[in-house]
Write a protein that binds this DNA or RNA. Structure first.
Length: 187
DNA sequence: GGGTCGATGCACT
DNA sequence: GTGCATCGACCCA
């Protein structure tokens, strides 16, 4: 069976370009025989030396080493004592590190399972934040380093047509707020 | 509707 | 020891 997973080269472009191109794409998460999926509606680009807000700005560590590794790989990190955030490694080959933070998705399949995972019924609040969508999709540090170009428990495929993209400063950071590397679409 | 603030653990200085 | 790429509960309106 042919899957429309995005090829490796999709992620081998400038991180900001990939952040925009990921909008409208579909994340598939398989848990047992359940399938959960959603359309990506908000992303943020994080780069390397030119980006003080990036985890990769200082140096390579155990946590951020995925950002320096192969593109198309999941970079999951733990924050605020109780949440995970999900990123996809993406960068121009000339750059040492970079990743795209997935901030929000529009629920598609497996909504019931997401509601159970989140203990919430409200569709609006199910996956409209980076820590919310990792809860809904059951993404934890177990998924650190998963190859998103392959048919596994977690991957990304072609999604829908994207019309208008909105750019803003990134959320929740104090540095480099002049860079408009937050990207959104309306569905 | 909007603002404030506590929860909570891990990576890094 | 500090501070975080957050969320939700609580307050006031």
């Amino acid at each position: 069976m042919i899957l429309n997973t995005l090829p490796r080269k999709f992620y081998l472009q400038d991180t900001v370009t990939v952040a925009k191109n990921l909008l409208g794409k579909k994340i598939i998460r398989k848990i047992g025989r359940n399938e959960i999926s959603g359309i990506i509606t908000e992303t943020e680009a994080y780069k390397h030396k030119d980006d003080p807000a990036s985890h990769a700005y200082r140096k390579i560590t155990d946590r951020n080493k995925a950002m320096f590794g192969d593109v198309g790989i999941a970079y999951v990190y733990f924050t605020y004592g109780m949440y995970y955030c999900f990123n996809v490694v993406a960068r121009n080959p000339k750059v040492a590190a970079g990743a795209v933070l997935i901030r929000a998705i529009e629920p598609e399949k497996g909504i019931k399972r997401m509601q159970e995972n989140r203990n919430k019924k409200d569709l609006k609040n199910l996956t409209n934040g980076p820590a919310k969508l990792t809860q809904a999709l059951e993404i934890t540090k177990e998924q650190y380093g998963v190859d998103l170009t392959k048919d596994s428990k977690l991957y990304i495929t072609k999604g829908i047509e994207v019309k208008k993209i909105t750019s803003s400063p990134r959320i929740g950071i104090k540095e480099a707020t002049d860079k408009l590397w937050n990207f959104k679409i309306n569905i």
